[in-house]
Amino acid sequence: MTKHIFPQGALELVIIRVLQGTANHGWGIAQKIHLISNDVLKVEEGSLYPALARMVQKGWIKAEWGTSENNRRAKYYSLTKLGQKRLNSEKQNWEAMVAAIAVILGTEC
């Protein structure tokens, strides 16, 4: 099956959604996205960690150290109230953009 890389801005949106209700570390986030999308979406590590850093910087998520499944120290990310608000507004923007692109692709120019 072809694996798709995320378009600009979509990765952050998906990470916020994955973190809704449960904190997770970077590896866990990547795995969850992979599983939920039925192996269609692949998160490159080179994109994941900079995205997480940007999101912490903006206050969408916060990070705390904890112990992971393999008994190692891991940084767990969880959603903040600001992140939840951003998800709500970005979701609407995303849906509007997808609809607009669909209109353009379906129009004869």
């Binding site: 970077g26 590896w27 590590e45 960690y49 992971s68 393999n70 190692r72 891991a74 940084k75």
Partner: peptide, 16 residues
């Protein structure tokens, strides 16, 4: 330092 530790964790999980 924190980023290095995160990357090590990521690699260890993948290897496991």
């Amino acid at each position: 330092g924190e980023l290095d530790e995160e990357m090590e964790h990521h690699l260890s999980m993948t290897i496991d």
